[in-house]
Design a protein around this nucleic acid. Sequence first.
DNA 1: TTCTGAATTACACAAACGTATAACAGCCGG
DNA 2: CCGGCTGTTATACGTTTGTGTAATTCAGAA
Lengths: 214, 214
Amino acid sequence: MTERRPYRRESEERRRDDLIAAALELVAEGGLRAATVRAIADRAGVTPGLIRHYFSSKEDLTRAAYRKLMDSMTADSAAVLQDAPTDPLARLARFVVASVSPPVVDPVAVGLWAGFVHDVRRDASMREVHSATYLAFRDKLQSLIADLPRQATAQQLRREAIACNGLIDGLWLEGSVLPESFEDGEIAAIALASVGAILGVNLTQAYDLERNIL
Amino acid sequence: MTERRPYRRESEERRRDDLIAAALELVAEGGLRAATVRAIADRAGVTPGLIRHYFSSKEDLTRAAYRKLMDSMTADSAAVLQDAPTDPLARLARFVVASVSPPVVDPVAVGLWAGFVHDVRRDASMREVHSATYLAFRDKLQSLIADLPRQATAQQLRREAIACNGLIDGLWLEGSVLPESFEDGEIAAIALASVGAILGVNLTQAYDLERNIL
DNA sequence: TTCTGAATTACACAAACGTATAACAGCCGG
DNA sequence: CCGGCTGTTATACGTTTGTGTAATTCAGAA
């Protein structure tokens, strides 16, 4: 007659969220390899069997976790523009800076992203999630660029958006993987100057101006 | 009396190289998870035990494979400048284009890189390999920029190199993960235009000019 | 040709993996 | 206060993992 572990019954939504959160933590720390059924259950404070009660397989949980990650990333970048200024230059400047600063730039996020790369390339449904998120971010960037007081063709707009998005991604990558190689604010300053150069506008000035007003 | 598998004795270098190559193939295909001792041995045409004869542990083999990957990447980028023109603008243009074109831009390479990210962050020796390779590439880029007929301070040079490197990395990433989202040569054209804009020079023209001469 | 030693195979082992199933216990409607 | 539904735990199974060790066989030296 051994003691049986006491437990609480939780709502399905709560349990699924907890399990997904636990899985993401583990993937961030040690890659998908570290996110075993037992480790996830332990982190979430339940026993392994419960996972299969809420997810038909470990792969199912993995997909759910990836969706959650991507959704929260898009939400973060969108939140920056919530109370943004009306001046197009200042809006773009703020968006750029936010994209290469914490919490977006974060070793954990890169680890998470890297952990899913292989599954994204293999699994069609995960690739779809990835593609949608990526294009949503780029489209938002492109709309911010289109609002600038300039003249530009559609093709030029597209290419500028791709370039700026690539620059942001690259700086996001480097800043996250090798954070000790850069001074505070250096990446943000570089991002502003470079995006401004690509677009032919002065983002640095726009950012500083709006900052001083506040 | 079962039949024992026949085999050939090979040099240590040959065997180590084969095992490393097999490990890299598997990591590229399915991440570190797929690179099991047995799978690597099978791919290399030997039995699993042999791996531990040449590598003290699987982790040891992993480190060796990562070093090999990074070394070959630096070698690839260096090879581009082997028979490069003398004009600084044309040299930089060629380097930029090569960095965002095959074989550098390659889904396999991104998969490989992503597969190692976690181990890079955890293991000090792997982080050192990563850091050295990254900085070597950026330094090369910075020296190419410094050769341009312009005036620039040391800090400005550093930041321009970081920006261009980030842009190249980002385009490398996007072009590799979502190759179907871009037309042929589009990424190269974007890279030339954007790097040129960041540095205040016309790289597109320099690239086309040198191309027409050949 | 024979001998020797090192490269290679073969086998074994404990731990950890994802999965399946049955037993328990918390909680809601009576 | 009490059944019964089901969320949850417990346990077990077959596979695969990395690793350790002994047996074998290839290739060069003598």
